[in-house]
Each structure stands twice: as structure tokens, then as C-alpha cells.
Nucleic acid binder design. Structure first.
Lengths: 244, 244
DNA sequence: GGCGATATTGCGGATATCCGCAACGAATAT
DNA sequence: ATATTCGTTGCGGATATCCGCAATATCGCC
């Protein structure tokens, strides 16, 4: 079987390559890619049976690459390998993983043993192996008591991109008031309470921008997620006129 | 001389340690730290002559650690070592480097040769060694034609933290209108023009939040910078009443 | 001092945002 | 079928933001 290691950092890449050899058989080979684009090329050219993919990479990050790969190849086994357990990543992945696909999600802080175990599990046993910490984040997003519901997350991303209420309303086909209603729920869940931080000259915080600040500091949003959102927004802007 | 390598990633840490040995003499030793706090402890306990410091680290990032170290030890030689050339980092560092201090700033993508050269330069020759790319960013921030002036950057950070115009005005002791004036300049420099992105239902973007989105995607702001700003903001909020 | 560039301020007004309140619809539970 | 819950919508109004315009203010410079 052919494997692919997609990772921009040379140290981590060679480390992954070495470790992966523990699940190798003679006939197996390991290809390498240093960014998302390269990964796509390798997958297109060779018959790849499993991928270890870093999430932070230049020119097409791991999630974008995985999305494209899974589109034409829904049962590709992918082991994600990331520095952070940001909710933005977790949400991003769970949005693109096809039904029944085999994948794993490991943090870079995991030990070598765990990595070997995960590689064996995902690539040899067709098991999904998700880091304990990631699993925690997943669960938080599922029960939307502490976590945000999908629609709340949507407006969060939209205001983070800088959209107005009206534009958000048009995009999701609800009324302006509906957007504001969602925003209010969002503010509540993020613990934004004007009256709490009010001084002699009035409230210190602007709810809208404060929500973005909190979301970023908590890892609900990150740069990659924003970039992805920006792209989707642009295609919407483009097809808005003819697509409707 | 004693050196300190502060870097959370074990691979990079051992790589740094190995490479640093090329500037070592017999009597020299290398200490290690995996986060900012540890780095501070090591510096407090041992007599350190030079530090290689990663900028992204858990519990006190590189800039915070450097700030504290330089406060009590203004001629400590520090070689910063980072993944990114974000303007937020460059500004953050240039704000805290004491007059006449020796430091360097290298990207992790630099070759081993460059790293050795930089280490030798900073630790043995007392030269400042700044990566070419970083230098470019520095210059952009200095001539404020394409870059932002300090006051513009200030309001940018403030709105990114979620502050209202009034609160920003109070903090910097200018009028509300003054804040809005600075904001207008900021919007202009970031290329935010309402009329450019106006559709049948009005403008798509809210200038305020859009500015934050653009700033983040361009690396003018990043998570660490925001966290640092948040802390400063909190101390201001606390001492606002009694300090004035 | 006088001059020009830049920054700040007040005014005024057009929008945008935030949000309480009440009503409505849809889905779910009893 | 009725009750409950949850998301959405319209209304109305209090603030907040954005910004053109014009008057000062501030600073460096000759």
C-alpha cells in the first residue's frame, strides 16, 4: 500500500515518515508532500491507501485538501495531525468527513506510541482514532448547551468576516431581525453582558466585535477557518445575482 | 557561558540544541525550557548569557517572556525563532526591545547555516541578525504609507478586543470623534470602501468588523497579540478608577 | 515668528446595531 | 389534541457607528 505524509515542517515530516514505518510492509512506500496542493497531486498520480495530514500548511491547508480528496475518494483513510484542538478545526473536519469514512485526529503532543497505535488503527484496522482531548471538544459542540448551535456558529463566522446584518440575512435567507436574534443568543452563550462591564462613560464593549474577540481567544475561530469562510463568502457574492 | 533554548516542540528543541553546539565552547552548557514560565525560572536561577526563544509557546509566549527578562536584564542576548513573520510579532518585539540590546529574529524555514550564523552573530559577536523577510515587515511598519501608524494600530487592537468608541477615547484620553477619525484612516489604509461592495440590499461589510477580519488575515493581528492586548486592557480597566 | 502638513475636535445627520416585547409557526412531547 | 419548546418575525426605540465639513490644534521646519 502507498502512504502519503503531508506536512510542511521538515522535522515533523521525517519523524512521521520514520514512525509510519512501523505499520509498513515490504511492498509499501511513503510519499511526501509539503503542502495541500502537493498532496492533491500525489493522490491524483499514485494509488494512495492512507494519508497522514498536517492541518496547518501553506497553499491549501489540511482541511481543504482533505475535502477535495474525499470528494473523489470517499473511503480514503486520513489521519489528521495537528498542533491544536481548536474548535474551528474540529468543526471544519466534522463538516467534511463522508459518512462511514475512516479517519483519525491526533495532537502533535501525543507520544510516539500513540501515533503508532493510531496509524495502525486507522490504516490497518479501519478504526477511527480520535484523541481524547479532541473528543472532548467534539462533545461540547454536539450538546449545544455550552457549545454553539450550527446557526449560531454561522452568524459568528459571518460577523467575524465583517458582514452586515442585512448581508447575513440575505445569505441565509432569513430576516434581518432573525439575524439579530441569533446574534443575541450567541452573545448570551459567549457570556457577553453589557451591564456587567459598564463604567461611568457607558459600556466598555461593543457586543459584535467582542464576540469575535472572545471566539478567537477561545479557539472557536482561527485564521484558517476565517480564510475558508472568506472564500465561501466570495463565491456566494459572485453567484448571488445569477444563482438566485 | 550558559545558553537557554526555550521551545515547546521537542523536535525543534533538540534541533536547536544540536545546532547551538557549533557556537559552544567546552565550558558552555545548554539549558532547556518548554514554555515562557520555565524560561523565566531558568533565567532567574542560572546565569544565562544567551537565549534562543520560540515565539509561540504555551503559558507565557516568547514576547511576554522576553519582556520580563529584558526588564531586569536589559542586555540579555535573545535570538527569536518563529514560524511566522506576522506584523503582530514584529511590532510586539520592537515595542519591548531595550535601547542597544542585542537580538535576532529568524524564521523556522531558515537553513541550518543561517541559524548557525545567526547564533554566532548574536551570541559571540553582539550583532543584531534579522531575517530578510522580517526586515521587510519592519520597514513597512516604519514608513507609514502602506503600514499603519502607531495610533492607527492602537485603535485597531482596541476594536479587535471589542471596545466601544467611548471606551477607546477614555483609554487614550482623546475625544470620541478623535477615535472615529483614527478609525477612518485605518479603514482607508486597509482598503475598506463601503461603496465598493454595495449590493441591492446595501453594503455587505461592516467597516469595524471587516477591519478586524482583514487585519487578522494579513497578519497585522494574531492570537498572541490579542491575548497580550487583552491583559493590558484588563489592568487598565482595573486601575482606571484609582489611577486617574 | 510664520508656514505647511498632520491630527484632533464639534456638529449634524444617515445608517446600523442591539434588544425588549409580543405574536406566530413548526416540531416534539404528553 | 393540547401543551411545551424553540426559532423566527415585526415593531419601536435607545444607542452606536460612520463620516463629510469646517474650525482648531499641534508639530517640525526654514
Amino acid at each position: 500500500m502507498n502512504f502519503l505524509v503531508a506536512e510542511d515542517d521538515p522535522f515533523h515530516r521525517s519523524f512521521l515518515k520514520n514512525t509510519l514505518e512501523s505499520v509498513l510492509e515490504e511492498s509499501d512506500t511513503i510519499h511526501e508532500a509539503t503542502n495541500g496542493k502537493e498532496a492533491l497531486e500525489v493522490v491524483a498520480r499514485h494509488k494512495i491507501g492512507g494519508i497522514v495530514m498536517d492541518l496547518q500548511m501553506p497553499s491549501a491547508n489540511g482541511i481543504e485538501a482533505a475535502k477535495v480528496i474525499w470528494q473523489s475518494n470517499p473511503d480514503m483513510r486520513i489521519l489528521f495531525w495537528s498542533n491544536y484542538a481548536d474548535e474551528a478545526y474540529v468543526r471544519g473536519i466534522s463538516r467534511i468527513v463522508p459518512a462511514g469514512a475512516v479517519y483519525g485526529y491526533l495532537l502533535k503532543t501525543a507520544s510516539v506510541d500513540r501515533l503508532e497505535l493510531a496509524a495502525r488503527g486507522v490504516f490497518r484496522e479501519d478504526q477511527c482514532i480520535i484523541d481524547r482531548e479532541i473528543r472532548g471538544v467534539q462533545q461540547r459542540t454536539e450538546n449545544n448547551l455550552e457549545g454553539l448551535s450550527d446557526s449560531e456558529f454561522e452568524v459568528l463566522l459571518d460577523i467575524a468576516l465583517g458582514m452586515t446584518d442585512k448581508a447575513i440575512a440575505a445569505r441565509h435567507k432569513i430576516s434581518t431581525r432573525g439575524v439579530q436574534s441569533r446574534l443575541k443568543h450567541l452573545y448570551d452563550k459567549l457570556g457577553i453582558d453589557q451591564s456587567e462591564t459598564t463604567t461611568e462613560f457607558g459600556p466598555v464593549f461593543n457586543s459584535r466585535t467582542r464576540a469575535v474577540a472572545i471566539a478567537i481567544s477561545r479557539g472557536l475561530l482561527n485564521v484558517n477557518g476565517l480564510a475558508a469562510g472568506e472564500e465561501e463568502l466570495e463565491t456566494w457574492l459572485k453567484h448571488r445575482s445569477d444563482g438566485a
